[in-house]
Amino acid sequence: MDLVFADMFPESRIHYPVIFARLIGAVILGGLIGIEREARDHPAGFRTHILISLAAALFGIISIEAVHMPGIADDQQVRIDPLRVIEAVTAGVAFLAAGMIVFARGRVKGLTTGAGMWLSGAIGLAMGFGYWPIAFFATVAAVCVLYAFGKMEKRLSASDEKDHR
């Protein structure tokens, strides 16, 4: 039974409270972007953005931890290539985001939601790698862009419609 518990809680390079804090941070920051999308009734909303951010953070943490696993790091020198992790997460999230983009009635829809999903992945990676200030700033910037610029965009399109009448 001791072996099972030892396997369930292996030694970690990043202390478990820090790992959990990073994952919670990814949930909160991804959720902030998702709330705005949810408020505008877009299909990829609150939960989707949280899951994307959480998954990206988890991939970042696992990539750091995997390098130091017993059996991998013992006999050989293993180096982490953070660019490969970033590329893998980017490709996966881009696949999801592309599914949100639709061309209908001569208009493109879902592009901003897809971009928000992609950004949630990047914010999750920043959290997973421990770059709290970068993740926080990117989230604040994203919410400002989505909310404030969204209002401005609506005003501009409403004035364009009036001009065309």
Rank of each mutant, 00 (worst) to 15 (best):
A21K: 07
R22W: 10
R22F: 10
L23N: 10
A26I: 09
V27L: 15
I28Y: 11
I28H: 12
L29T: 04
G30R: 11
G30A: 14
G31F: 12
G31Y: 13
G31W: 09
L32C: 15
G34R: 11
I35Q: 10
I35H: 00
I35V: 15
R40D: 06
R40Y: 08
D41F: 06
H42W: 03
P43A: 13
P43Q: 09
P43D: 05
A44M: 01
G45L: 06
G45M: 00
G45W: 05
F46G: 05
F46I: 04
F46C: 00
R47S: 09
R47P: 05
T48N: 09
T48A: 11
T48H: 10
H49N: 14
H49V: 05
H49G: 04
I50Q: 13
L51W: 08
I52L: 11
I52E: 08
S53A: 15
S53I: 03
S53F: 09
L54T: 06
L54E: 03
L54D: 10
A55S: 15
A56I: 02
A56H: 02
A56K: 05
A56N: 06
A57W: 09
L58P: 03
L58Y: 04
L58V: 04
F59W: 09
F59S: 07
I61L: 15
I61K: 05
S63V: 05
S63K: 03
I64N: 04
I64P: 00
I64G: 06
A66I: 12
M69V: 03
M69Y: 14
P70I: 07
P70H: 13
G71T: 11
G71S: 05
I72L: 15
I72M: 13
D75S: 13
Q76P: 01
Q77F: 11
Q77D: 05
Q77K: 12
Q77I: 11
R79A: 13
R84V: 02
R84M: 05
I86F: 14
I86M: 14
I86W: 01
E87C: 10
A88P: 11
T90I: 14
G92K: 06
V93M: 12
A94D: 03
F95M: 13
L96Y: 07
A97Y: 02
A97C: 12
A97D: 02
A98R: 00
A98M: 09
A98Q: 01
A98N: 01
M100N: 01
I101M: 08
V102K: 08
V102W: 05
F103A: 01
G106P: 00
V108Q: 07
V108E: 01
V108F: 05
V108N: 02
V108L: 14
V108K: 07
G110K: 07
L111R: 01
T112F: 12
T112R: 05
T113A: 06
T113V: 11
T113H: 01
T113F: 07
G114K: 04
G114A: 13
G114F: 00
M117K: 10
M117N: 08
M117W: 04
W118R: 00
W118Y: 13
W118I: 10
W118K: 06
L119K: 06
L119R: 08
S120Y: 10
S120P: 07
S120V: 06
G121K: 12
I123R: 06
G124L: 07
L125H: 10
L125I: 02
M127H: 08
M127K: 00
M127T: 04
G128E: 02
F129N: 06
Y131E: 13
W132S: 06
W132Q: 02
W132K: 04
